[in-house]
């Protein structure tokens, strides 16, 4: 079936609608104007310099990277171990465990956020990176479990048995056979976990306090005061960063398929 001109025209318009706002942000970020205006009078790196010259922005950036890295470590290790064993649980237990693990994908963000805020505020975890890491791990785990689970679906359990029959300990069989073969799934899960934490805002709105202001939280705060093109520069950088990570994930998947 060929696409006819009207359909192609409509499709192009929708694609333009999808791409335009993001292209626009990038364009604004290179503006030389002091305030938000379009088209920019001239182009320059003024707002990137403003970003790099701001201690607050940089502190938030490093905090977000740190929180995301810790989230990756926790979510990937807990999620990978769970994914390995989920399939071997009895049916009823498996269904219940999967429902809990995957539910953050379904439960509305605001409900999760205020629930966590409700408990964490009593535990003194507001304004602390630790609280953010604990919460983000719960949000990121579903991506790790599904990604590792997908790798495991293609993994022949007999390979593990073969390794055991050849003298490998359970840990040895996991390290030498299972892990190398599911590694792409683990890495993709880790990338998703990173992006989930790095972009997360709703939980951060409640948990950040004044002591742990993540990058999305700082953008949000700034947006409420004034639309300063520094945000456009930050946004452009995060888009580029995310795209880079996703490109990496895509390559990993391709490699896994070969």
């Amino acid at each position: 079936m060929r696409n006819r001109p009207p359909l192609l025209l409509l499709t192009s318009l929708v694609l333009l609608f999808l791409a335009l706002p993001i292209v626009l942000i990038a364009a604004v970020s290179f503006s030389s104007a002091a305030y938000l205006t379009f088209p920019p009078p001239a182009f320059g790196l003024r707002w990137y310099r403003a970003y790099l010259g701001s201690a607050d922005w940089l502190a938030s950036t490093w905090l977000s990277i740190g929180v995301a890295a810790a989230t990756v470590a926790l979510a990937t290790s807990l999620g990978t171990l769970a994914a390995l064993a989920l399939g071997r649980l009895p049916r009823a237990a498996r269904t219940a465990a999967a429902a809990l693990i995957l539910s953050p994908l379904i439960v509305p963000g605001i409900v999760v956020a205020i629930g966590i805020y409700y408990a964490f505020s009593r535990w003194g975890l507001i304004g602390s990176p630790v609280g953010l890491v604990l919460a983000h791990t719960c949000l990121a785990v579903p991506f790790v479990v599904t990604s590792v689970g997908a790798s495991l679906a293609n993994f022949d359990r007999r390979l593990e048995q073969a390794a055991r029959s050849l003298g490998a300990t359970p840990w040895g069989a996991f390290r030498q056979v299972t892990l190398p073969l599911i590694r792409p799934g683990v890495l993709v899960g880790a990338l998703f976990a990173f992006i989930t934490s790095f972009d997360e805002l709703i939980v951060a709105l409640f948990l950040s306090g004044s002591g742990a202001v993540t990058l999305p939280r700082r953008m949000w705060d700034d947006l409420r005061f004034a639309i300063d093109p520094t945000i456009a520069a930050v946004a452009t950088l995060t888009i580029a960063f995310t795209a880079l990570l996703l490109g990496g994930a895509h390559l990993l998947r391709q490699r896994a398929l070969r």
Partner: peptide, 21 residues
């Protein structure tokens, strides 16, 4: 063995996600 592997995650999510919500 499966319980030992899934257990840590379930406990973690119960404590920091399910219980709070």
């Amino acid at each position: 063995a499966p319980v030992l592997l899934v257990g840590p995650l379930l406990l973690f999510m119960a404590a920091f996600y399910a219980f709070p919500v």
